Deep mutational scan, measured.
Amino acid sequence: EPLWIRPDAPSRCTWQLGRPASESPHHHTAPAKSPKILPDILKKIGDTPMVRINKIGKKFGLKCELLAKCEFFNAGGSVKDRISLRMIEDAERDGTLKPGDTIIEPTSGNTGIGLALAAAVRGYRCIIVMPEKMSSEKVDVLRALGAEIVRTPTNARFDSPESHVGVAWRLKNEIPNSHILDQYRNASNPLAHYDTTADEILQQCDGKLDMLVASVGTGGTITGIARKLKEKCPGCRIIGVDPEGSILAEPEELNQTEQTTYEVEGIGYDFIPTVLDRTVVDKWFKSNDEEAFTFARMLIAQEGLLCGGSAGSTVAVAVKAAQELQEGQRCVVILPDSVRNYMTKFLSDRWMLQKGFLKEEDLTEKKPWWWHLRVQELGLSAPLTVLPTITCGHTIEILREKGFDQAPVVDEAGVILGMVTLGNMLSSLLAGKVQPSDQVGKVIYKQFKQIRLTDTLGRLSHILEMDHFALVVHEQIQYHSTGKSSQRQMVFGVVTAIDLLNFVAAQERDQK
């Protein structure tokens, strides 16, 4: 057995438009009618409502009807409940999964919650491996369901041993009777949507819809739904939504950006999952974080739909894509998950301010006199920076000697690579993860907040409520011999709460 199987392995699926269902090699399930009293909570997966979006479509000038398939009504709160249950049931049916076995899954959280929910009911041990950027709410729900959680670096490539995929496979090879159901490759993922989600949409719309818009992560949702719609409703256009920084969209030119990270969760990847059939997507749109969270908040405030950030991405694209539809036509959007997962993220004004998705003037509360002053007023001194090749031991000596707790790590040209902190280095040394002679590049981390000289002290204040420091950066445009230009970030300084307090105190003292 291989040590790991690539999540982007070539698909062996034989589905073709027009091929009889009787030739399918898979076990198919028909939607079942729910009894009045459910035998367990797993029976509350599927049969989610279709809700008309009344205000947002009109606000953006849509002539067509805009409908939302509300997947956050599933038992675990997301569309991923469907595939989690289906993968477990299919693994039980073919004898792969037996009582007492362990389920391991690399996930952005929602599939993990679905699997942990099913594992709690069915009696399996469950280990979820997820990147650090995923919300604390997801972690809390997983723990409450009895799952064990392993976190991995957000910026690790999918084929790196440190990625959530790599760590999951390492655990599988170490733990007896453990299984990775593997949402990236498992046919049960798109089949769950082909058999149930798509049929529900067709039934709820009486077979009449002209466009379907869905955000894409593993691709199982859009693949399964689109294949069924292509068979039953061939005139329906399928629109895929991919965040900026991901590479799922086609044509490839759409993916060209210097951005590699994004805040919206559960969609987009740096590889093409095996289950994603991009041939059934008629057109791709890219979405960005700001519009995703703005539209998610709009869905909550104006439509009462308590959905997550990827739902915002989907609707932001839908109001663009559906401009081509006329009166009497219908566009369906998939709202994948609930706001429950993001209470401390985009639902929080403070978080939105820190990330730059909300401006101070958007909030009406009274601010102190210094709130709208610029960061450049602080008069920061030149920063202490270190090269990635310097040793951890030497870096600790320098920081202690100069009285700093942290320093930016830059390359020879001064471009920011990340940050090192005294606390992080000492804990890594004590844990045996690094040696004093190791290069400081081994303990770089990139989960820090950046701020510009033109940003306000109010925004800085919000950042420092949650973080010990902020890195002050400025952009530099560099022209190359080819005539092309590129933008790079340079370090201007490091600012802490002490710097802000000293500035405010000094100004008030001078005024007296």
Rank of each mutant, 00 (worst) to 15 (best):
L471P: 12
T314A: 12
V264N: 04
M343D: 05
I272N: 04
M343R: 06
T261K: 11
A431C: 02
A316G: 10
V494Q: 05
L325C: 04
L373T: 10
I334R: 02
D438H: 14
V281P: 11
G441S: 10
E253Y: 06
E365L: 13
L417Y: 10
G418D: 06
E475T: 03
L305P: 02
V264Q: 11
E412Q: 15
K359H: 11
F469T: 07
A497E: 03
V386Y: 11
V443I: 14
L276P: 01
K355N: 12
T454H: 13
A311H: 05
V494M: 15
F492D: 13
A301G: 14
I451K: 08
T496W: 02
T454P: 13
K433T: 10
C307S: 14
L501T: 02
D362C: 01
S427Y: 14
D455Y: 10
E324K: 15
E253L: 08
M466S: 14
F492L: 14
S428Q: 12
W369I: 06
V440A: 12
V495W: 09
K359S: 15
V504P: 02
R350T: 10
G309W: 00
Y262Q: 05
E412P: 13
S381N: 09
K283M: 11
H394M: 09
D242G: 00
C307I: 07
I247R: 08
G483N: 02
E263L: 10
M343Q: 05
A301Q: 08
W370Q: 06
F448S: 11
I444W: 14
G308Q: 01
D467L: 08
M490T: 02
K367M: 15
V319K: 04
G308E: 00
D289V: 00
E401R: 05
S381I: 14
S310K: 03
Q507S: 13
G268D: 00
P251L: 07
P243V: 09
S428H: 02
D411R: 14
S310M: 04
Q447F: 09
T279I: 12
D455C: 14
G414T: 13
N255C: 07
K366G: 09
G312I: 02
K442H: 15
Q354R: 08
D467S: 12
S246M: 01
S310I: 00
Q302N: 11
P273F: 06
I300H: 04
L299E: 04
L373E: 14
